[in-house]
Design a protein around this nucleic acid. Structure first.
Lengths: 329, 329
DNA sequence: TTGTATGCGTTATCAG
DNA sequence: CTGATAACGCATACAA
């Protein structure tokens, strides 16, 4: 393995000088910088991650926490986008990142988790898919032992930033759009899980809409489950004008149920997953750019790690209509 | 950070003794082992990954290479299963693993890749979704600089193992089953990409089947694309008894086309993805257990790293019929 | 069986 | 602006 020492020899300078060039220290003459970079090039030198971590205490790695079973198998798409966005942005910013699934840390205590991450030289976390119930994660955030970016939960403090879209406004917009297009007077709303932050925001929106537009509203909890949405639809949809759902998967369940009942009701979902195109009917939905979101999370975590204070970040969304022709290719 | 030194103090032994306990050296008395473990417990000590890597040169990390765009977005499911299986098995075996997407290393040379992995202390690779065309990966394997497990490609040498299912037999079985159930005399086969190893195996199978059973066979290349399969179906399906596809996604494209044409032809796919349940018709397919496969890959890589020679491993598959009721929940 | 000493490749602190 | 040199936490050959 070619080390910083070899580079120093080749360039005819001291080891510490090479290190300074590598880490973009200010006090290095342009000339030596050139020499060193030339040597690095010639030798194909790449700094050893383990050594720099051991030595510096400074730069640490980051961990991406993914919760695959949050909804169901069919939304792997969302998690893949989270992973893809975060990994490539991290590579671009030369940050070292590892992927961790919730299931791997589920039965660990906060202390165990903390020790585990410390032993892995992890300084920052990105949490995707956190719900109100996860006591361990809340404690972890409160402990402020790591810099953390939380996606889809409104939690921030000195060490923690929050990133999400305006779920309330988005749900309002898409439901209003769907209602207006179809002249609906009443809504069946299939809400998400009670312990989900985003589900709460979305539900608030539909209640505001019903109030403002004086529409009749029936709210049922679908738990983000396609099957539950299906059952709810069979039971309640007939007497109402439209079905608004807190997730695409539930929208799909609702639409399939409606097709079996052989009645038409406009349906809208939330998230913009590809699967939406497969049910045979167009549906309105809120499209989130998940890989962009996680990329932004990496950037934000970088800022936290370099000393910025935590904050709340709201990203844009898009209202779309998804159909089979859009997703096939 | 609590270090091995603290543990040594607490237990009243030397640093090296602690290290020996940690690494399960033989020559340690049961008594000191107890003392050390007690101290470790009390202090909540977890060994520092970076330090042990720097020091040992022995155990390295492993990288999981994922190719997300191999087919289309809709099969993120497969990659998620690969990731989930590998990560959790790695955690279980206390192996350190990172996830890498092809897109992040696409335009690097073999030397660059090698240096990059070396700098990250990576000793072994698991490659998911390799095709015949990827010159860089083939060179990487030939170079034998890393221990490698390749999924879905029949490549093995002293340092490289191959893992896949018997694609030839599986394709034969599922097509025969579908043909028998529906008394078909002729087949439209929509093959995969020409540069895919698995596609080649699957195509061989269908040719053998047609020969042995004296069935008429028309082979067209669908490139693993849903859209291509759709077009092929529109053009050729009418005159043939059934449509066999080299992937589920193409099977879905074919089935949707048949539904639009308003004719019935039995369709079979390959892989067993959840999406199969969404097209409204039952279809036969070959179900692969992707997370199991990647978990086995991790185990195999562990063996390679501890000196075993590379080999070819064939895992089992299952013939299933997928419908909406099976996947919803 | 246990302890001592050295080195792994960097970074960071100080002298020069 | 540049060069020695001491950490960083651990593994390991060697001495006891």
């Amino acid at each position: 393995m070619v080390s910083i020492k070899d580079v120093a020899n080749q360039a005819g300078v001291a080891i510490s000088t090479v290190s300074k060039v590598l880490n973009h220290y200010p006090n290095v003459s342009e000339q030596t910088k050139q020499k060193v970079n030339k040597a690095i090039e010639e030798l194909g030198f790449v700094p050893n991650m383990a050594a720099s971590m051991l030595s510096s205490k400074q730069a640490g790695r980051i961990a991406l926490l993914i919760n695959p079973n949050m909804q169901t198998q069919a939304v792997d798409e969302i998690n893949m986008q989270y992973i893809a966005g975060a990994l490539s942005k991290a590579k671009e910013l030369r940050m070292d990142i590892i992927t961790v699934f919730f299931s791997m840390i589920r039965d660990m205590s906060v202390t165990e988790i903390t020790n585990y991450f410390r032993s892995q030289n992890i300084a920052g976390l990105i949490i995707c898919g956190m719900d109100k119930k996860s006591a361990m994660l809340h404690k972890l955030i409160d402990a402020q032992a790591f810099k953390i970016v939380v996606i889809d939960a409104p939690i921030f403090n000195q060490y923690t930033s929050s990133i999400w879209i305006d779920n309330e406004q988005a749900q309002y917009d898409i439901a209003l759009k769907t209602a207006t297009e179809n002249k609906c007077k009443s809504i069946l709303y299939i809400a998400g899980k009670r312990d989900s932050y985003v589900a709460g925001e979305r539900q608030k929106a539909i209640e505001r809409l019903a109030r403002e537009k004086q529409m009749k509203l029936v709210v049922k909890f679908g738990e983000f489950s396609e099957l539950a949405a299906r059952k709810i639809t069979f039971q309640y949809a007939k007497k109402l004008d439209m079905v608004a759902c807190a997730s695409d998967l539930m929208a799909i369940g609702a639409m399939k149920a409606l097709m079996e009942m052989d009645i038409f009701r406009p349906v809208c979902g939330f998230d913009g997953i590809t699967l939406m195109g497969y049910v045979g009917q167009q549906m309105n939905t809120v499209k989130q750019n998940f890989s962009y979101i996680s990329a932004q999370a990496v950037i934000e975590l970088g800022k936290l790690l370099s000393g910025d204070a935590g904050r709340n970040i709201v990203l844009p969304y898009e209202l779309v209509r998804m159909e089979y022709e859009d997703i096939i290719r």
